[in-house]
Design a protein around this nucleic acid. Structure first.
Lengths: 294, 294
DNA sequence: CTGCACTATGAATCGCTAA
DNA sequence: GTTAGCGATTCATAGTGCA
């Protein structure tokens, strides 16, 4: 079985190939499928009212391919039409549960640099959903791998709070916690929470060529989450040499994150231009990693 | 008709009293109903699988009571049971749409100062949902009332007088602005987005007695949002002397926010202890306001 | 190589016009 | 009637170029 490959093709067909995508073979699936758009675009125009029925055959295969203790991270956000939010994402979550997935969590990805604009009835949309699904409740989760320095997350209040105030507040909720307050305060790194804010200064700086390859710009491919997003989930749900699948890999961000973290990757992309770009970006990322030890 | 009152009673019954709650009489409903809990608590233990059917009769009355151009803000967050997120919130949104509500937006309330903690399968829950529903798409929204200071990036950027945006902005407004450029730059405000982060420094400081009355701390009251949360929505969706209803008013935070903003309020609370506390807190808040002009 | 000035643009939304 | 396309609106970043 081959890993570290980007396949060109339609996930809805390719994922059914059991010789390529064996059952229970993948540790983590991270993907950001094309969102539902009322109007068709060059890339991935799935109509909102058909979204769930379009996605379910794919997620059925993903369930098969994922290891029993693996995780599935789905980055998605509904849009607005005629002043109302679309409902297909809510319906998708319910449908995925019907299909057997456990809905473990919904992370909020807070995008500070959201698209500008002003409308009469709405402000700018600055967050997206990152759903965490699993096959069973005993999934693997390496929480220590994503600890953050205290102060990075908005511990402002704790910093300004006196020690006494802090103890009092904590002990008001749970006495066991109260006892451990000193530990928390003295610890250099703490566990994060379920609101994700990716600020470059807080993470390893990745060379520009990998982040925004010139050849991939100005293509109509809109969907790039920052490298930090898959990086975070890969650290949290896999160990080195683990296998990460992205069935809508686009220009390869998930694969790059996996490669840089010494994990193995599998990607599928329907637009051959993007698939090629993804392969080249991964190659460049690996080269940079080997050279400079990124 | 009496305003500025906290009623003790069950919303499911009281709201049907058309002499108290007249049709199309309220500008804004802001509430944080008891969340679904697997085990019943002293206060508001509605079981997750019965949540929607419990809420719909209430929301039906709210629809009646709300003015056609009014808004309904629902603060809620599903819990987790057996490692899985409950689905009743998703189902509630779909059911409210069935009932005639328009789902305009889902704001993310990012609670930065949630306390550290660690569970096996999840991190701390640091955000809640604030759904915005309306009766029709032509609802009232006073966006200018909630503008926020522009990001720090502007300090550097606007130092240059030749910048395109700068010229465009100055010439686009009025000449008086142009004369006092430096002052205007320092005070420039922009529209917010749909992730709400309440940091005290950005808001009027409210005396502690109103914010956290001693008598109400450590009570098992489920839903206490900070004063800033209803304040923000009241500014956004009502004008002075507008009418704000909270059918689960608890210890009165929504009513206090309304009173401090010179709006009228109506509240319902089933636990008479809390209702009394709410009345006292509102009284104290009004007194403080009259004295010090908070 | 750092620092600053300046440019470009991003998973957007709504209303209007034309077909 | 319905749908598709276009313009106007708006702000926080990354990236580039120059001193």
């Amino acid at each position: 079985m081959n890993y570290n490959r980007i396949y060109t093709g339609d996930s809805n067909k390719l994922l059914r190939d059991v010789s390529i995508f064996r059952s229970a073979s993948v540790d983590l699936i991270v993907t950001s499928p094309p969102y539902g758009k009322k109007r068709k675009h060059a890339y991935g125009g799935v109509k909102p009212d058909r979204y769930v029925e379009w996605f379910l055959p794919i997620s059925k295969e993903l369930f098969r391919i994922l290891k029993p203790k693996g995780s599935f991270i789905l980055n998605i956000k509904e849009g607005a039409t005629d002043c109302e939010r679309e409902t297909y994402v809510l319906e998708l979550v319910l449908a995925l549960k019907e299909q057997g997935w456990l809905w473990i969590e919904e992370f909020c990805w807070y995008k500070k640099n959201s698209f500008p604009g002003k409308w009469r009835h709405r402000f700018r949309d600055s967050w997206e959903r990152c759903y965490h699904f699993a096959r069973q409740s005993e999934f693997k989760m390496y929480q220590d791998a994503v600890k953050v320095p205290i102060g990075d997350w908005s511990t402002d209040r704790f910093r300004s709070m006196s020690h006494k105030d802090y103890i009092r507040n904590v002990s008001g909720t749970n006495s066991k916690m109260g006892r451990n307050v000193a530990n928390w305060l003295n610890r250099r790194r703490v566990y994060p929470h379920n609101v994700l804010v990716f600020e470059q200064e807080h993470y390893e700086r990745i060379p520009n060529i990998v982040r925004f390859p010139t050849a991939c710009r100005n293509h109509n491919h809109s969907a790039v989450f920052p490298l930090e997003l898959p990086t975070w989930f890969i650290k949290l749900f896999t160990k080195p040499s683990g296998i990460v699948l992205d069935p809508f890999v686009g220009v390869g961000t998930t694969a790059i994150a996996a490669a840089l973290l010494n994990r193995r990757y599998l990607g599928i992309e329907i637009v051959s231009e993007y698939a090629q770009a993804a392969r080249r970006r991964v190659r460049e990322a690996r080269a940079l990693k080997d050279c400079h030890g990124v």
